[in-house]
């Protein structure tokens, strides 16, 4: 029984990290339909942001989160205004452009911060372990889980309970009609992109103490994020949660029963099979195209 709970917790933890990384992409790709290949690099920028805040201003991880969110969000805003908005009707060009932005970001970070692995300290408050239902769980993983849950609620509230969210959903459903009703679609898109980028930045800062920080770290995260969003069903926030939870439990338990190499392969296979029989993902929202 202990073992079962232990594995359940591990799956939840892996799932919460997946959701954390995918949430920003779910907003950007899900709502705006922009295939943002630089998402992993936004995550990387967040991790370096946390590192820089500590190295240059002596700020701890928790204190730097707000700065990272605003900083990476502002960068996302600039990217949307400077590049993405010219490419809304050209999905292939968007892929190329965002890929290029990603490569440039990697090299820029390499130039300014150096290419060696960096180190972000875990807040000492959270570096202990806690006992949940009788099993030992790292305190920091519990923190990430709670943080992601809160972040999800905030995002849901923003999308479904504020006038900004209403306008965004209106633009997503029918841009022309929404504009006829006086919605500034450009502005809505810029802010949405900025918010998604900010979320990616937060993800980077939060995973940094558990993993390693390097200019190339984004590659693994962007792949995971796309898996989660595509499997969950584009445009469905709850689908993203469900798919992150499912993938987390799957990779956790398969890695326990076999090993991580096999787990990775089987999870990929499962995604391919699922997408084959349900191309719209687990949850689909009806949208006029």
């Amino acid at each position: 029984m202990d073992f079962f709970i232990q594995q359940l917790m591990t799956g939840l933890s892996i799932g919460s990290i997946l959701l954390l990384v995918a949430l920003g992409l779910a907003i950007i790709y899900g709502s705006m339909g922009v295939i943002n290949m630089a998402h992993g690099e936004f995550v990387m920028l967040g991790a370096y942001g946390a590192w820089a805040m500590n190295a240059y201003f002596g700020l701890g991880l928790l204190a730097s989160l707000a700065f990272v969110f605003v900083g990476v969000g502002a960068f996302g805003f600039a990217v949307e205004r400077g590049v993405i908005r010219f490419l809304y009707r050209r999905p292939l060009d968007t892929i190329l452009a965002t890929w290029g932005i990603g490569v440039m970001l990697q090299q820029a970070v390499r130039l300014f911060a150096g290419g060696e692995l960096r180190y972000v300290e875990m807040p000492s408050l959270l570096s202990g372990t806690v006992s949940v239902f009788g099993v030992i769980v790292p305190g920091y993983r519990v923190f990430i889980f709670l943080f992601v849950a809160a972040l999800f609620l905030v995002t849901w509230f923003l999308m479904f309970r504020t006038s900004f969210g209403t306008r965004l959903r209106a633009v997503v459903q029918d841009r022309q009609t929404a504009m006829c009703f006086g919605v500034n679609a450009d502005r809505v898109y810029s802010l949405t992109f900025a918010y998604g980028a900010g979320l990616a930045g937060l993800a980077g800062a939060l995973v940094a103490p558990l993993k390693s920080v390097s200019p190339e770290m984004g590659g693994a995260y962007v792949v995971d994020a796309f898996f989660v969003v595509v499997l969950g069903g584009v445009q469905s926030l709850f689908g993203t949660v469900a798919s992150a939870a499912l993938l987390g439990q799957m990779s956790g338990s398969l890695a326990y029963l076999a090993n991580d190499t096999i787990a990775k392969a089987l999870v990929l296979l499962a995604i391919i099979v699922l997408i084959r029989f349900r191309p719209q993902g687990l949850f689909a929202t009806k949208v006029r195209s």
């Binding site: 090993n259 991580d260 990775k264």
Partner: peptide
Amino acid sequence: EEYVPLGHSEFSSVINKIRS
């Protein structure tokens, strides 16, 4: 005896196995 993919960064399950 087990091997993780190069660049792997999620060791929760490995740590559970080590624990047990």
